[in-house]
Amino acid sequence: MPVAVHLPTVLRPHAGGAKTVTAEGSTVGEVLDALAAAYPGLSGQVVGDDGTLHRFVNVYLNDDDVRYLSALDTPVKDDDEVSILPAVAGGA
């Protein structure tokens, strides 16, 4: 099923400048795989070669960080929204 995926500014150039795109999938991981297939520049930017989320991005299903749900296995349904944001961190 198609869901809306909101992209952070740093990834938009890989999707033709779009803020929001749609991708199909029944889980968050499938949606992200479909996204990478549609926009090859996004491949490897969100999910690493080891098949898990990169630690420098946060992925949300609606209002929730998917790391606190079932990560990439989190099921999605119609009208759900996936958001990707950079993880913002640093230190002295």
Binding site: N58, Y60, D63, D64, D65, R67, S83, L85, A87, V88, A89, G90, G91, A92
Partner: peptide, 18 residues
């Protein structure tokens, strides 16, 4: 991160702000 040496912007706060 609740630390005197490092920080991590709380992911949900980030989503709300965005």
């Amino acid at each position: 991160a609740a630390s005197a040496k490092v920080y991590t912007v709380d992911p949900r706060d980030h989503l709300r702000a965005d």
